[in-house]
């Protein structure tokens, strides 16, 4: 007996595999989305180390 190129297990488990694949894709989307939301929530940071510097930050004019 030799395995067919398309083994029956591929057909039998198609639903399971598709479901897990979609769940993993959803998980990746969630982690990416959370990253975007959390990074944006931090607010604007200047400089490589996140320290606000006078020379690159617009001065706030006092009234």
């Amino acid at each position: 007996m030799s395995f067919q190129p398309e083994h029956e297990i591929h057909k039998r488990r198609f639903g399971r595999n598709l479901g897990i694949g979609l769940l993993l894709a959803l998980f990746v989307g969630i982690v990416f989305g959370l990253t975007v939301v959390k990074v944006l929530a931090i607010g604007e940071k200047r400089g490589f180390d996140g320290v606000v510097r006078q020379e690159v930050t617009p001065q706030v004019k006092q009234p």
Partner: peptide
């Protein structure tokens, strides 16, 4: 009997 995705749900 093999479980489908719905069985795990």
């Amino acid at each position: 009997v093999e479980a489908g995705f719905g069985d795990y749900v």
